[in-house]
Each structure stands twice: as C-alpha cells, then as structure tokens.
Design a protein around this nucleic acid. Sequence first.
DNA 1: TCGAAATATTTTATACTTAAAATAATTTGC
DNA 2: GCAAATTATTTTAAGTATAAAATATTTCGA
Lengths: 168, 168
Amino acid sequence: MALAKESPPVSPKNGADQEAEYRAQTRLWLRLLACTTLIEGELRRRFREEFDFTMPRFDVLAQLDREPSGLVLGELPKRLMVSAGNLTPIVDRLVEDGYITRTPSTLDRRVQIVCMTVEGRKAFRRMAKSHGSWLAELLAEFPTDRLDGLIGELDQLKGVVRDSLDKP
Amino acid sequence: MALAKESPPVSPKNGADQEAEYRAQTRLWLRLLACTTLIEGELRRRFREEFDFTMPRFDVLAQLDREPSGLVLGELPKRLMVSAGNLTPIVDRLVEDGYITRTPSTLDRRVQIVCMTVEGRKAFRRMAKSHGSWLAELLAEFPTDRLDGLIGELDQLKGVVRDSLDKP
DNA sequence: TCGAAATATTTTATACTTAAAATAATTTGC
DNA sequence: GCAAATTATTTTAAGTATAAAATATTTCGA
C-alpha cells in the first residue's frame, strides 16, 4: 500500500496538466457520443425497415419480457431512464397494437400493471434475435479479447458519473 | 509476428464462445448507452437551467465557432450527424435570436452560408466554458491516467462500426 | 441548348423527449 | 376522521429527430 501515495486521488494540478485533462475529458465525451449515435442510428434504421418498429417501443418490451407477471407502470420510466410522461403515448400504442396489456391494480387505483401478451412476447423474441445479430455485425471487428476490458471501463465511468450526480 | 496466428481475426467459434461474445457485445452496447444517456441528460438539464439553451443549438454554434468565414449550411447536418430537415428550424431560431446569420451565396442560389455573429460568439464562449467545467465535474473521479486509454478504445470502436456501415 | 440528373434546402407527417402543470387516489399527521 | 402531503399517471407545450416528398437551382450530356 506504500505506493498509493504516488498518485493521490485529488492531487493539486498545475495549469498545463489541468488543461490537458480538460481536453481529454472533452474528447472522451465526444467519442462516447459518436459511438452511441452511430450504433443507435443504425439500430433504429433497421428496426424501422425490418419491423416497422421503434427502439423505445422495443425497450419497453425488453423490460417486460423478463417479468412474466408484469410490471408496475411506474417502474418503466425508472428502468429506461426516461420521463414518465414520455411513456404514456408509447404504452398507449403498444396496448392498441396488442403487444401488452394495461390493467389497473385492485389494491391501489392509482397504479397500473403492464404485462406482455403472448403475441407481444412472440414478436419481441423475433426482434430481439435480429437486434443481437445486428449488434454482432456492427461490432464484429472489435477484438473479442478487449470487449470485457472496455465493458469494465465503461462500468467504472458510469459509476463515477452516477456518484457525481448523486452527491451534490 | 509468429504469435499472430494464436488469435486469427476471423476464427471459427464454437457455440459457447459465440454465445459469450454475443452477450458481451450486448453488455457493451448497454453500458455505452447508459453512460451517454447519463451524461447527456445532465448536460441538457444544465444548459436549460443555466442558459435556457439546448444542446443541438449549442452544437451548431460549436461548429461555427471554428469557422470565422462561416460554413455552407449543408455542412452542418454532415458534421453533426443529424438529418438536414432537422436543422432548418434550429438554424431558423438561432438566426431569429441573433446568434448567427444566414446569407444566400451569390455564386449558387441554392446554397446558404451560415456565420456566427459577434454576440453569438460571445455567448458561445461563455457556454462552452461552463460545458467544459460540467464535464470535468462529472468525470472528476475517473482516473486521469486511464482517460487516454479509454479514448483510444472508443476510437477503435467507432472505427470498426463505421467500417461495418460503409462496407455492405 | 435543352431536357434530365444532381444538389441544396424546406416542408410534411410521425414519433420521441422533457419539464411542468393537472388530475386522481392514497397515506399521514394531528 | 379529515386536511395536507405524497404518489401515480396523464396532459400540455416546446423542442428535437427522422424519412420522404416537394421546391428551387445548377450542371451535364446528347
């Protein structure tokens, strides 16, 4: 543990170091955004072309797929990190189209339970399979042995950002 | 170079390996999306609260900041990776609000040149400074000595995705 | 040179997104 | 036991996003 002191977590930085870190942080953010935009755009395009479906709709089904007994509606915005108001029309349409059901709770009339239908589950499974293969196609040339390392770095990144958002 | 054969770029994989890679690729995508969503949401929130401004508007100004002589309007959708139709109302409002000018080219009446105004540049600089410090705050706890490594990985990821999109 | 292809931009239709206000139902504190 | 705070959800207003069609202009080829 003696070596820990060589790079203290909050060392004072001189101007040049500070500037360099600033630039690196900005570059990191731009790369992150570029990667996400590229992949998201292609996935969205394919969802539309192949299935006439959108990603937010798919995301809702993905959450419900692992919940055979359904989910309290209010859980969806939390899990998907979107606003509650946003989900209302999306859930509306998924119900209309027969992919899911929405039933008021008998215990608490404010609460609604959303649940995948049999047809919804079938459609989701089919789309999820394609989704996986599209991703595999896009990422095929990324070295397999570095996938886990990158996932780990992003996990840590997510952690520090979340901490920063929780604290102040 | 003799060692290269130990991990050929396109080795046939058995079922279990294939499955594991599939899962890792999906996890990578979900982490990427989560990091971007977290950071983007916070930056958007602060832009709105501090400056009553939006990120797409800021992004347009950022492109114009480094182009003292202005930019052909058609360059913006390419650089920002958004659709052209999308930019029309955003540019409209930036012109209305006095941040930029839009002047038809004398050589080709289809073309328009957009250019930052003095006030636009001043406002942009002020916002860019805050943007940098918000990012620094969010990423403060990420180890400085791993920033460049992560940027490199994301650069490579961006490269393989782009190649995959260009080729087929 | 004149009609067709190409290019730059806008419009339209549809969908997603947020924040904030509104509505409805439940819980809690006194 | 009842008013006030809390919780779940929807509505509204404004902005962002795409794709596809429309418009206007220029270039190119026979």
